[in-house]
Design a protein around this nucleic acid. Structure first.
Lengths: 157, 157
DNA sequence: AAGCTTATTGACAATGGCTATCAATTGAAA
DNA sequence: TTTCAATTGATAGCCATTGTCAATAAGCTT
């Protein structure tokens, strides 16, 4: 095929998705594609159940198991990242390779999740891994607390 | 009771434990005390099931539910800390108030967990919380990777 | 376009860590 | 020792997630 050599703008998540299916003997199906698209549309920190509920509004026949399965595929393809905070649910987050790594700050009161980036922390983690002779593959930093809104409420309520 | 005024060396985990029971209308029982002691003896990052298995060797009648219940109490009393890595188990870690806060570096291959401390990271986290106007209550930093042993094996095996 | 092979789907059963329930037992205050 | 709430072990239940399976759909090949 005569595709462009340029990669920078070229590899959208859709391409990554199609490529992953191809290279793994998987098929593109209407359900799969629909779920992937809806996941992309909704983005941040969604649970399988929430995504399923959302899709059900328009496509009432799609099963929960298929949503779970598709999210797993998207995670394997590097399109979604699995996140487990402390509420018993696995959440999926759209991963944009253009974005830098980010961590999370979670409100234990209202559940709000904010993202933040901090290069210094990243660097310090690398040096810790080196000190312990670990090959670092992933890391997770979560700050738990109460957001401005909820701590104000707690004081006045 | 004529106990010392000094606190520094005074409050062992046993005292903390007894005090917690007292202040919460809970009773000291042979099972409870046994589980607490065994937990203290084994220390690091144990699951309820592992602890139960260990205790069963000597005291075969103690039930799993009681181990779960006791670990919850120890956590509420501030004697144990709950940790959830990514293997689906809740692990409990003995908490020594003399110790500084530490984080974890986990080998995804053999499951080894090492602890580390890093004040710079701690400080950076505080500043992040401040920037987002969060009241920081807790935080969790985990580095996932392969330990020296396992990455060597991977290369040669 | 039809046939063929294999992946996929939705419904639902099963899993597994953990918690609730309950009748019997125990701790400790009176 | 009586009394009564707390506790225990066994086990049923919970719930997010995964496995099973017969029916169906994708994507070749001809």
């Amino acid at each position: 095929m005569a595709t462009s050599n340029k990669q920078k703008q070229g590899d959208t998540w859709q391409e990554k998705y199609q490529e992953y299916l191809l290279h793994n003997g998987l098929k593109s199906t209407v359900q799969r594609d629909l779920i992937a698209n809806e996941f992309y549309r909704l983005k941040g920190h969604i649970t399988a159940e929430d995504l399923h509920a959302n899709i059900r509004k328009k496509h009432s026949s799609i099963g929960l198991a298929t949503v779970y399965r598709t999210l797993k595929i998207l995670a394997s393809a590097g399109i979604a990242h699995e996140r487990r905070f402390n509420d018993g649910f696995t959440r999926y987050e759209f991963f944009d390779p253009e974005d830098r790594h980010h961590d999370h700050i979670v409100c234990i009161s209202c559940g709000k999740v904010e993202e933040f980036e901090n290069d210094e922390i990243e660097e310090l983690q690398k040096s810790v891994a080196k000190r312990y002779k670990f090959t670092m593959l992933d890391h997770k930093l979560e700050i738990y607390g109460r957001c401005n809104n909820c701590s104000t409420k707690a004081k006045n309520g």
